[in-house]
Simulated scan of single mutants.
Amino acid sequence: MRNTIVSLIAIALGLVAGGILMLFIGANPFEGYAYLFQGALKNIQRIGDTLATATPLIFTGLSVAFAFKTGLFNIGAAGQMLIGGLCATAVGLTFDFSRPVLLLLMIFAGLIGGALWAFIPGLLKAKFNVHEVVSTIMMNWVAYWTVYYTVPGYFKGEFLETESRKLPDAATLKAPFLTEMFQGSYINLGLFLGVLAVIIIWFIIEKTTLGFELKAVGFNRFAAEYAGMKVNRNIILSMLIAGGLAGLGGVAMYTGNASSMQIGILPAQGYDGIAVSLLANNHPIGVFFAAVFFGLLYSGTGFMNAMTEIPPELANTIIAIIIYFAATSILIERLVNKFMKNKNNKKAMDAPAPGKGEL
Rank of each mutant, 00 (worst) to 15 (best):
T150N: 12
K125H: 13
A10I: 10
L193T: 01
T301Y: 07
Q80D: 14
I199R: 05
A77D: 06
S329Q: 15
L111T: 02
L105G: 08
T94E: 03
N188W: 04
A65M: 07
V142R: 15
A268F: 06
N337M: 07
L116D: 01
M261W: 10
A290E: 13
P152L: 06
L93Y: 04
V6F: 01
P29D: 10
L335N: 04
N220P: 02
A126W: 15
G256K: 02
G273H: 08
L266F: 10
L15I: 15
Y271M: 07
L8C: 05
Y324P: 01
L248C: 00
G157E: 15
N232T: 06
L210C: 09
A320F: 04
A170M: 12
G14D: 09
L15K: 09
W117I: 14
G157L: 15
P121C: 04
F159L: 09
A197H: 01
A246L: 04
S98I: 15
I112D: 04
E161D: 11
E313V: 10
T89Y: 05
T255M: 11
L173P: 00
A34I: 06
A224H: 09
F95W: 15
I322F: 11
K230S: 15
L8W: 04
A320K: 03
S185T: 13
P100E: 00
M1E: 00
L13W: 08
N281Y: 00
V64E: 02
L160D: 05
G244D: 00
A320I: 07
L178Q: 02
T208Q: 09
F119H: 03
G250V: 06
N129F: 06
P100I: 01
L111M: 01
F192E: 05
E225M: 08
L314V: 08
L178E: 08
I205A: 14
L62Y: 05
G32Y: 11
T308I: 13
L335I: 08
A216N: 02
V276Q: 04
P176K: 10
N43H: 08
L266D: 12
M307R: 12
L189V: 11
S260P: 03
G264T: 06
Y144A: 06
T70H: 05
F177M: 11
F37Y: 15
L103K: 01
G71H: 04
K125N: 12
L178A: 09
A275I: 12
A34F: 12
N140K: 08
N282A: 14
M304L: 13
I83G: 03
L62Q: 03
N305E: 08
L123T: 06
A351N: 13
F68E: 07
S277Q: 02
